[in-house]
Design a protein around this nucleic acid. Structure first.
Lengths: 140, 140
DNA sequence: TTCCAGTTTTAGACATATTCTAAAATCAAA
DNA sequence: TTTGATTTTAGAATATGTCTAAAACTGGAA
């Protein structure tokens, strides 16, 4: 079973009619943790599929979001980014590079959210800002 | 001492040369908790000061931010909003109305942020989504 | 006061991100 | 096949925000 067939089946299982463009877009956007913008998705998909249009990328990203395959976040600089990690998690933004990093749900303790007078909280996320630590020089 | 004089002095104290436009913008944007967008600031300021230009509003909001009088957040729908609450706090977004509500820093417990491998966290904020609770009918 | 240099404001051009539109291409089912 | 619905497309339209260059204004020096 080819990669293409597997992805086609996956899209169908989520109520999405597969097409060559949708599979090409899914192949990238559903398997990256780089939080790409729509234009980054377009650029990446065009490497293998040069004829895909910008409108199709926007349409497909929205379709994937409506079907629950990804989320769209507005965290930085007026640009929407795709996040194929649909499990609950937090986000860290590197203020030097703009890079967005997923932070596991259990890595942070959040408490007392139910006691907010007048607000009924359905979901939440911690947005952290800072800098990625330089890796200590490896010793191999 | 007029309101205008008081605001002029406040701006000067923060290294900002006062002007009629800057005072008019400050009067609104530094005293609201409505998290207005730039265009909402423009509309509001024009009610009293019809000649103010869009460019001046954008310039002034940026100036106020650089001088630490407000922050700019991108929380929803690709629009930047002004937040004159410069103390640490969290945000609640009403998913029905888009309304943004400040949540006091101490109303939420957040812990264990320092233990994130490879990430040096300088600041953080909890972003909550849900619905404002309907006020129970008052009994007066 | 009047002048001047620096600052502020302005309209409109530009840039960027996203959505819309209407026509062409493609597809699935009969 | 044909057909009718779906998908894709280029480009127009919209929205938010920045830039530019000229005009207006300001505070101090003369």
């Amino acid at each position: 079973m080819t990669d293409h067939e597997r992805l086609s089946g996956f899209l169908q299982d989520h109520g999405i009619q597969p097409s060559a463009q949708r599979v090409a877009i899914a192949r990238f956007v559903l398997h990256t943790d780089r939080h790409p913008t729509a234009d980054e998705v377009l650029a990446e998909v065009r490497r293998d599929f040069p004829m895909v249009s910008r409108a199709t990328v926007y349409n497909t990203i929205r379709l994937f979001m409506e079907k629950g395959l990804l989320r769209i976040h507005q965290l930085e600089g007026g640009v929407a980014v795709c996040d194929a990690n649909t499990a609950r998690h937090h986000h860290f933004i590197d203020e030097d590079t703009g890079e967005i990093v997923d932070v596991p749900w259990d890595a942070v303790d959040v408490g007392r959210l139910d006691e907010l007078a007048g607000l009924s909280v359905d979901s939440w996320m911690v947005v952290m800002r800072g800098r990625r630590r330089r890796e200590p020089p490896s010793r191999d």
